[in-house]
Write a protein that binds this DNA or RNA. Structure first.
Length: 203
DNA sequence: CGCTCGATATTCT
DNA sequence: GAATATCGAGCGA
């Protein structure tokens, strides 16, 4: 039995949590009638989002109905709907001296339940089946009803297990934002071929 | 391959 | 009214 990451793990600086989640294993448990389906994959890409001091964060203006989870207990699923068609999955994480924070899960390498992910995505191409926050959410059947879910329990439906982390991770600017572009708060597994975008290597 | 554009909920101005 | 933590279709080279 692999250890489920607990609130101690998530109650650390958001940046550290985002970095350390790379290499961990994201697990989604779907119960359909009498059947239990397990979907899982290695996290290969994350982004950290902070509080008032982070102009790119949903939490920058203070708590609202949408971002409330970022201000609550750590280790909770922060799910939001964006661009009118996509869900994104985050996990709340912060140290005690920060008042909001979350880590956006951007990409996994599918390991278990690949066929179910394909049918949820309506795609056959496996290489990018869960690469990109919208695709990841669709491949794992993430919806608004999961917002606020306790991810520190393996019974909740979504949790993260201990995994083998790479020796180091790349830190790059976050994707799709226009403020605080220079902050390198995106973390990727250097050896993964399943990233939502290729890492720009400086020459 | 790379670029443009439409979809369209939620929040901000 | 404008922007957005996105994706995929359509088009041209």
């Amino acid at each position: 039995m692999t250890r489920c990451l607990d609130s101690e793990f998530y109650s650390r600086p958001t940046l550290a949590v985002a970095r350390d989640l790379v290499g961990m294993r994201l697990v989604r448990t779907l119960v359909i009638g009498r059947e239990t389906i397990k979907l899982a994959g290695k996290i290969v890409e994350t982004e950290a989002y902070g509080a008032a001091d982070d102009p790119a964060s949903h939490a920058r203006m203070g708590p609202t109905k949408r971002n409330a989870v970022m201000f609550g207990q750590t280790g909770r699923a922060y799910v939001y709907f964006t661009y009118g068609s996509h869900h994104c999955l985050n996990v709340s994480a912060r140290s005690f001296d920060e008042n909001a924070g979350a880590v956006l899960l951007r990409a996994i390498e599918p390991e278990e339940g690949v066929d179910t992910m394909k049918s949820l995505r309506r795609q056959e191409t496996v290489s990018f089946i869960a690469s990109g926050p919208g695709r990841l959410a669709q491949a794992l059947a993430i919806e608004m009803s999961l917002n606020g879910l306790d991810m520190t329990s393996s019974k909740s439906g979504v949790h993260v297990e201990e995994g083998i982390r790479p020796r180091f991770v790349y830190a790059t600017p976050r994707i799709g934002i226009s403020r605080a572009v220079s902050r390198k708060w995106r973390f990727v597994d250097p050896s993964s071929a399943h990233l939502s975008r290729k890492v720009q290597i400086k020459v």
